[in-house]
Design a protein around this nucleic acid. Structure first.
Lengths: 246, 246
DNA sequence: CCGACTTTGTGCGCGTATTCACAAAGGCTT
DNA sequence: AAGCCTTTGTGAATACGCGCACAAAGTCGG
C-alpha cells in the first residue's frame, strides 16, 4: 500500500508518534554530549543517557533515515542537526502566552523558549490590573488585542495558561485567528477543529496518577486502615461524602 | 494463570496504565457534572465531556468494577466516589516542593493541590536569599532540612522544580529519605531505583512535539523555502551551524 | 590485505491499547 | 404484564509499540 521504498526513503513521512515524543529527549542528551566535546556516541550510550532501551533508540533514529556507522556509532553533531531539522527547530516558531497568572509568569521567564527556536511574541491577560505590567522584558497586553497580535507576529503556537473557565473561549479565538497548535495548561479538555493540535500539561492529573501507584504500593484501595473485608458492598449507598471541588 | 473470577472480581488489581491516566480526566468531568446537579450520565455524554471514545470509557470503567445501569447510565456521585477511591484520593498525600523559582512559586500557589487531597508540607530551596521567604502562606526552608522534613511530615510525593543540574542530586536525596513518587519538572532524565515512580512534566518537549506537527502541516522538513530536491544529500558534511544551547 | 570485533539496522513475536459491533440487561410505556 | 427502547459490558478484530536477537556492515589491529 504505502509505497515502501527500501533505499533512500528519507524514512517516509510517517514517523510514529511515540518516536516523535522521544526525539526531544534524545536531542537534549545529544546537546549535552556536544557541550562536553563528545564527537561520536553509540546507541547504547545515548540510550542510557535518554533513559530508553538501545534497540528502541536505534529504531527511532532509523525512522528519520539517520545514518550511524556500524562498529562506531553516531556522529553527535550530525544527529543533533538531523533531529533538530525533523522537529522543525531549524526555524523559529512564534508563541503567544495567554494568561499571566503565576504559571504564565513562570512560563514567560522560562529559558527553554528562546534557546530552542521558540520566540515569545506576546503575553496577554484579561485582567486590567495585570495588563501593562513588565514581565520578563515584555509588556503584558490585553486579550482584546489577541487577534491583532496573532496576525501581526504570525503566531502559530498558543500557550494557554488561563483559569479553566476561560480556556475554551481563548482557544476558540486563537484557532479562529489562525493558530494551529495549542499547549494547554488549563485543567479542561479543549475541543478544536480537525487540523489543530492540542497538547495538555496537567499537574493535577500527574499527581493523581502518582497517588494511584502510591496507594497500590501501600496495598491497594482496601489496603491499610480498612476493615477486614467488610466494606460497603457495591450498590450500597454508603459512600463517604468527600466532595472534591473544582 | 491470573485467577480470573468472573463475578465480583473487584476488577482485579490490574488496571491498565492507559486507563489510570484517563481516570483523572473522567473524575474532573464528573465533578463538573456534579456541581451542575446532574445525577446520572450516559457513557456517551461522559465520553464527550472527557474527549474520548465512549467504548473506551465503558471499558475503562469496567476495569474498576464500576456499575452502570443499562438503559440509564452511570450515577454521577457513585462514580466520583469509585474513581476517587481507586486513585487514592480518599486519603491525603503529603507533598514537598523542592526548588522555589518561578515555577516552584507557581506550583506552590496552585489550587489543584489542596483541593484534591494533596497537602503541601514544605517548600525547599538551596538559595539562601529565597529561604525564609513567605510564599502561599508557607515559609521556604533550606534544602539542608530536606530529610528532616520528609521524615517529620511523612512526605510521599516530591515535586522537583529545581534547575536541571540539581535535580538528580535532589532526587537521590528524597528517594533515600523514603519518597517513592516523584514529579519532575526539571529537564533531565532522572534515574531512580525500582519501586520509585517518576513522572515528568516538560514544557520544552511539548513545544518541540508541537513544532514537529506544525512543520508537517506546512509541508515537512523540506517543505517550503527549500530547493527543488537539491538538498545536501545525507553524508555530505554540510549542515547548518545552528547550535542549540542547553 | 585479512580476520576478528564492534555496533548498527531490522525481522519477528509478544503484549497492550483501541475500536467496532452486538447480545444482554434493565427501565419505561402502554 | 409484555414488549419496546435505551444503554451497558464485552468478545473479537485491528493497530500499535516494544524489545530480543541476529545478520549485515564497517572498523581496526596485525
Amino acid at each position: 500500500m504505502t509505497s515502501r521504498q527500501n533505499h533512500r526513503d528519507r524514512a517516509g513521512r510517517g514517523i510514529p508518534e511515540a518516536t516523535v515524543a522521544r526525539l526531544p529527549v534524545y536531542l537534549r542528551a545529544l546537546t549535552g554530549l556536544q557541550e562536553r566535546g563528545v564527537a561520536t556516541v553509540s546507541s547504547e550510550e545515548l540510550a542510557a543517557a535518554a533513559g530508553v532501551n538501545s534497540a528502541k533508540l536505534r529504531k527511532d533514529l532509523s525512522h528519520l533515515g539517520s545514518y550511524g556507522t556500524r562498529g562506531v556509532g553516531y556522529e553527535v553533531e550530525y544527529l543533533v542537526y538531523q533531529i533538530s531539522r525533523e522537529l522543525g527547530l531549524t526555524q523559529d516558531w512564534v508563541v503567544a502566552i495567554i494568561g499571566v497568572g503565576n504559571l504564565g509568569r513562570a512560563l514567560a521567564g522560562y529559558g527553554g523558549f528562546a534557546s530552542r527556536g521558540f520566540r515569545v511574541a506576546g503575553l496577554l491577560d484579561a485582567d486590567d490590573s495585570i495588563v501593562g505590567q513588565e514581565i520578563a522584558g515584555m509588556t503584558v497586553e490585553h486579550t482584546d488585542r489577541l487577534e491583532d497580535i496573532i496576525a501581526r507576529h504570525g503566531v502559530s503556537i498558543a500557550v494557554i495558561a488561563t483559569p479553566a473557565g476561560a480556556a475554551q473561549g481563548v482557544c476558540d479565538r486563537v484557532v479562529a485567528a489562525g493558530v494551529t497548535s495549542v499547549l494547554n495548561f488549563a485543567p479542561v479538555v479543549l475541543s478544536v477543529p480537525d487540523g489543530v493540535d492540542v497538547r495538555k500539561v496537567d499537574l493535577s492529573i500527574e499527581l493523581q496518577i502518582l497517588a494511584f501507584h502510591e496507594q497500590r504500593k501501600a496495598g491497594g484501595p482496601d489496603g491499610l486502615a480498612s476493615t477486614t473485608g467488610g466494606e460497603a458492598p457495591p450498590g450500597t449507598k454508603h459512600y463517604v461524602e468527600t466532595v472534591i471541588d473544582a
